[in-house]
Computed example of a mutant assay.
Amino acid sequence: MTVTIKDIASVTGVSYSTVSKALNDSPLVKEVTKRKILEVAKEMGYEPNLAAKQLVRKKTEVVGLIWPTIERIVLATLVTNITQAFKDTRYSMILSIDPMDTAMETFRKFQVDGMIIFEDDHSKVNEEITMPFVSYGVSGKKHANHPVIDANHEASMMKAVEHLVKLGHKHIAYAGLLQTKDQLQLEKYQGYKKAMKEHSLEPFIKEVETEGLDWFDGYSAVKTLLEEQERPTAIIGGSYDISGGILRALQEQNVEVPKDISLISYDNIPQMANMEIPMTCIGVPVDVLAQEIVESVLHRIEAPEKEATVKKLAPTLVERETCGKANR
């Protein structure tokens, strides 16, 4: 049987309105009375009527997250961290991996207070969205008229190349998705080329196009690369999954890591430490990224701003066992 505010009022001997005020932590109720009411409510198993609260506040305290997939380990890890970050707030999160139009229609039905949108092309973001939202992607696009959380892929590549150059590497290859409209992936490749130029180095003669972001894509691309007469002394992998495939391909060809070829991976997630060889990685730590996304959307909900804001985050390089000094 559902316990109501009137039931609590009957047991405590106070008015219905006093119980209501106490449950809402009103300063109009004496502390001793408030404590008694809260103790009785807990003993009776009272649960607040969320629908009624939402009606009064005109808020659901729910945020919708539009995500491309949870199949890739990195994205699943980020979603998990975003969910965890919401636990420290009064908000809850619902996830949709449907196309954007379908997801937004679902969120309208749930009357969410705001949205987080993962979008590699901001031109796809509907400019008619009226609810508060932020997106995770690449900033600097003229059509981005909303808050953007940018993980700063270019700065990541700059740090990765700089780290390898300090170890004496000159023949540095980048393995990732090159022929794509995905702005997140393109910025990594462009950042790599920019970094090589700043260090007066030429991009490695053989471009390593993975044609995808999965483990097998990295594995296949690097197996092909190893058939070339000239090999790099270091490889930067474009993602956790790609780098896992690269590492296995190198091992199968009896290429010692890092003695023969050093390896750095994009994506700063805890799983990097548990690879066959603990992987040196670059990127914004996934827990930091999740916290920034959640704080930004809640700020947008609670203090709406019309103008676009961009937050470029600072990547961190974590040294482990896959990088060493150049052997030539």
Rank of each mutant, 00 (worst) to 15 (best):
F204S: 14
T180Y: 07
I235R: 09
V32N: 15
A9C: 12
T130Q: 03
L167W: 00
G244T: 13
V161I: 15
P99E: 07
V288R: 14
A175W: 00
D260I: 11
D88I: 09
K124T: 03
T106F: 08
E295T: 14
T280Y: 00
K259W: 03
L317D: 01
A249D: 05
L23K: 05
V255W: 06
P315C: 11
G324E: 11
V255Y: 02
P315Q: 12
V29A: 14
K87M: 14
Q229P: 01
E31V: 15
A85I: 14
E71P: 00
K311C: 07
E127Q: 10
Y174P: 01
R57L: 12
Q54I: 10
R57C: 07
I8F: 08
N254C: 10
A51Y: 11
V19C: 01
L65D: 03
N274C: 14
L201C: 11
M1N: 13
A160Y: 01
K42E: 12
T83R: 13
K21Y: 04
L184A: 13
Q54L: 10
L23D: 01
P203D: 10
I94H: 09
T233I: 12
E128V: 04
K59Y: 02
L177Y: 14
K325W: 02
R231V: 09
D120W: 08
A160I: 09
I301T: 08
L95H: 04
S239P: 07
M44H: 03
E61Q: 15
V74T: 13
A273R: 15
E127R: 10
T12W: 01
G245L: 12
E202F: 06
G238Q: 02
E256C: 06
R248P: 00
F86H: 06
Q253Y: 02
P27A: 06
G45M: 04
P258G: 11
D287K: 15
F110I: 09
A273E: 14
I277W: 00
A290Q: 10
D25S: 11
R320M: 08
I172L: 06
E319C: 08
Q111T: 13
S123M: 05
A249M: 08
V125G: 04
I97Y: 05
K142R: 03
N49L: 03
T102S: 10
K21N: 06
I5P: 04
E187Q: 08
T80L: 12
L23V: 10
L38K: 15
G64F: 01
P147E: 02
Q271F: 07
K312D: 01
G137Q: 09
R108Y: 10
A290N: 10
V148L: 10
H171Y: 06
P278D: 08
V62M: 14
E252W: 09
Y46N: 08
M196H: 00
V284M: 05
P232I: 09
K36D: 04
D267Y: 01
